[in-house]
Design a protein around this nucleic acid. Structure first.
Lengths: 232, 232
DNA sequence: AATTGTATGGGGTAAACACCCCAATGATTA
DNA sequence: TAATCATTGGGGTGTTTACCCCATACAATT
């Protein structure tokens, strides 16, 4: 969460506090790993005493293993790797070493991948296509706890809002809510109890990440999730 | 409220319950009054023992006086009358004889007049231009407590929604409500107390005749009362 | 000078909402 | 067969609405 510390080895123990960052590099191409390692270890890249690459791996499972072993400050991760993909690695890393910052490099920018990574909580997401300058610039901030998603990926997320998979009942409920129906009216309309409507409503709000009906309406209208013919 | 009853005379007293409707007819033309009376008293027009016209008047003040005196079940009222117009008569009738059904005949269909009458609570509103058949048909239902506004007037109201004059504060509040702000947030945003926001909010709902935020939103969006750029 | 309208708020209240926990169905899927 | 998910719903709770009454202050009208 802060500076280079907590780099432990035996699963539970933790290292001495020291002003150095430890990193694991994961990429299936040895050449790329070498390049990344050299760049990371270049003095002056980050504050304090720089970064030390404590492990290099070429597949996902190894990446997870090394992170569990070293609990590094940073995992530099290529999405396309054998044995375990970027997202699975992320999840495991989060489980076993929550304080490890995960920076992902990706060549592809599929919506699914990007949003999965962001939801899994990547700390950094950059394109392999462009130069790595951007990543190197942002790295210090990331290590301090900031998140950096390259603009192109933010754009992708923006243009491709999660369809927000609503169940039938939730969608029906949404339509009625937006038409100004109260929970009681909806319950009567759908022939179910108020409590159930209440449940659907709460699920809706959580799925759509809103906290009030007006926000719900604005979102639903914008996303075209409902008929424009809003008759009361 | 139900059948022909409560037709009292001396201001406070009330008549014996009987299955007969009592009516007052108000129109400034004697010929019209006669025609209306004949039609009303025609047997079989309404259930029970028909209608008895207990008074005919040619001006608004007399209409009010007769209604106070007889407390009839029905007041058949022409809008254009000397001394007191249709709306004023309505208001007074409502005050002095709340159970009297007021059916208004009008030649003009000005928006202001129509909406005033409807808001004052006319029980029936029909055009003098067309035949009175429609009114005679609806009369039984009106006497039972239903309201009937001729479709042409409903259309007028529909096409001519009240501009709803909102004050500055109300408009500001509306804009914030629609953006999903809670009363507390609005209060902080405007630098006033929650109670005042609450007041504005209530005023809004009443002016716009809605009872829930979604209805408020839909109306505001439809009327273009707010910016379409609904950003949360 | 008296009324009306806007804006400000305190007290109070019943209803509605948002959300928590828990539990029991079926249907789908692993 | 076990696990997941959608749907249903009861208990319960703190917050927010919507609206009531009342009162003050100030400006614009009448």
């Amino acid at each position: 969460m802060s500076s280079g510390t907590l780099v432990g080895l035996p699963e539970g123990m933790q290292r001495l506090k020291q002003d150095r960052y430890y990193a694991v590099v994961a990429d299936d191409h040895a050449i790329v790993r070498a390049g990344l390692r050299d760049a990371l270890e270049k003095p002056g890249l980050v504050e304090h005493d720089g970064i030390e690459v404590v492990a290099e791996v070429g597949d996902g499972l190894s990446a997870i293993a090394e992170v569990r072993k070293h609990r590094p400050d940073l995992l530099l991760l290529d999405v396309s790797m054998p044995l375990a993909g970027g997202v699975e690695v992320m999840v495991e890393v989060r489980r076993w070493s929550p304080d490890t910052k995960v920076v992902v490099l990706t060549g592809v920018s599929a919506v699914g991948l990007v949003s999965d990574l962001v939801e899994a909580g990547v700390d950094g997401l950059f394109s392999k296509a462009s130069s790595n300058e951007e990543m190197y610039e942002k790295l210090p901030n990331i290590l301090r706890g900031r998140r950096h998603i390259a603009k192109q990926f933010l754009d992708i997320l923006e243009e491709n809002p999660k369809p927000a998979i609503l169940t039938d009942r939730e969608r029906q409920t949404l339509n009625l809510i937006i038409r100004g129906r109260s929970n009681k009216e909806i319950a009567e309309g759908l022939g179910i109890s108020i409590k159930t409507v209440d449940k659907h409503r709460t699920s809706l709000m959580q799925k759509l990440k809103v906290h009030s009906v007006p926000q719900l309406m604005a979102l639903a209208l914008k996303e075209g999730m409902i008929d424009a013919s809003l008759e009361l």
